[in-house]
């Protein structure tokens, strides 16, 4: 391993650690401020609430590592829920419904992935358009009505095993499986290669398009799973479900240290990011603040996370010297944002 790479890895590992500290400090501060906060029931509640976000954010991490973005995640969540609650699937055994919804999630992800890879339209615009398509389709299925879910479909959100709620099991599964896929498989390596230098990956003969489309398909699959957990917990499908979800998901991922420029990322970071955001949201509920305050908070957190990442990049450039990475003020760093919006 080159010294430069070692320095970079050490810096990145160090940069990821603070989030755990942030989470602990946040939990401690909230427990001290609000007497009811530090209860088993509340911690359990935070874990359950963070589960769908964690699952969806793990999927978004793959997409962002390829230097892509998926703004349609909230609409996919809604369309998946709409399919789950549709008349066509009424009376069908729960397992089969879950399978159908998951397959639909993969399908939606593939639509994004194929549109991004086959046309090279910026992922931002592709997913901004599919955001409308998926939400419209969901509205078509539900007729913009609130739909109560059949009892057999709610278990995935309300059941528990060994004292741990089902959503938490699923989120843990997604995190561990997602992490292993990322760090231990060829696909995971390819994802990083495609994200850090697409042209180099093409020249090295990697199946760049299939890997990119695969990342979006995986994101679709995990979003469908997030949708199943979310709706199972709520017991109903509302037309507003998933609106503005893209910001929460992207914020969790970026907060976790995954770079919006692609190539670098961490599933552990994403999980911590989702936990920090959910804890902050619960804290705001305890403080009695208006729900719109959370809009401002997650917007501000995204901005701070992006800026922190940029600063980190700058320090990194200084640490390893101009031969490996030119300083942030140089052309190479300035050109990067233009490449990917």
């Amino acid at each position: 391993m080159k010294p430069a790479t070692r320095v970079r890895d050490a810096l990145l590992a160090g940069a990821r650690q603070p989030l755990l500290l942030v989470l602990l400090v946040l939990l401690l501060a909230l427990s001290v401020s609000y007497g009811d906060f530090a209860s088993t029931a509340n911690f359990r509640n935070i874990a359950v609430q963070a589960s769908p976000l964690t699952i969806a954010a793990v999927g978004a991490t793959y997409v962002i590592i390829t230097a892509g973005i998926d703004l349609s995640v909230g609409s996919m969540l809604f369309l998946a829920a709409a399919i789950e609650s549709s008349h066509a699937l009424a009376g069908v055994p729960a397992g089969l419904v879950f399978l159908t919804v998951t397959a639909a999630g993969v399908g939606m992800g593939l639509v994004n992935g194929i549109a991004v890879t086959a046309t090279r339209v910026p992922a931002l615009v592709v997913t901004l358009a599919t955001l409308q398509v998926f939400r419209g389709a969901g509205g078509h299925i539900t007729g913009q009505q609130n739909i109560t879910l059949a009892a057999n479909l709610r278990g995935i959100g309300t059941a528990a095993a060994l004292g741990v709620p089902a959503p938490v099991w699923l989120a843990a599964g997604a995190a561990v499986g997602g992490g292993l896929l990322f760090s231990r498989t060829v696909f995971g390596r390819y994802l990083q290669a495609v994200g850090s230098h697409r042209d180099a990956a093409v020249h090295a003969g990697l199946p760049v398009r299939r890997v990119t489309a695969g990342a979006y398909a995986l994101a679709g699959l995990l979003t469908a799973l997030a949708s199943l957990t979310q709706t199972g917990r709520l017991g109903a499908v509302q037309p507003s479900i998933g609106q503005g979800y893209e910001l929460t998901v992207v914020t969790a991922v970026v907060l976790g240290g995954t770079s919006l420029f692609g190539g670098r990322g961490s599933i552990t970071g994403t999980v911590l990011g989702a936990l920090v955001l959910t804890t902050a949201q619960t804290g705001l509920v305890f403080s009695g603040a208006s729900p719109y305050v959370f809009d401002i908070v997650r917007g501000a957190v995204l901005l701070v996370a992006v800026l922190a990442a940029a600063m980190r990049w700058r320090d990194l450039a200084r640490a390893v010297g101009p031969t490996v990475l030119r300083p942030a003020r140089s052309r190479s760093s300035r050109r990067k944002p233009a490449k990917k919006w």
Binding site: V250, L260, W313, A328, R334, K340
Partner: peptide, 10 residues
């Protein structure tokens, strides 16, 4: 050095 979409989404 941040992407415009992140700034404007925030």
């Amino acid at each position: 050095p941040v992407v415009p979409f992140a700034v404007t989404l925030a």
